[in-house]
Amino acid sequence: MNGATLLVAAVVVLVLALACYGIYRTLSTKGGCASCGGACHRISDDSCHCKDRKG
């Protein structure tokens, strides 16, 4: 296994880990924000000002 393969494998693992974290963030928060057109899909997104919703 050469260095380039290891490097690409590491990048792929990192990208997939970030994607999984993104999925986790989306699924682990309750509710959904109707005021942003569904852009945040959750209540605790600071950019959405929906922190006070209770799911």
């Binding site: 994607a19 993104g22 942003c36 569904g38 852009a39």
Partner: peptide, 17 residues
């Protein structure tokens, strides 16, 4: 932008995995 970004974000998470 909000709707487009939501689509791109989904492509980078759910769709990628």
């Amino acid at each position: 932008l909000q709707r487009g970004w939501a689509f791109v974000k989904k492509a980078g998470t759910f769709i990628l995995v």
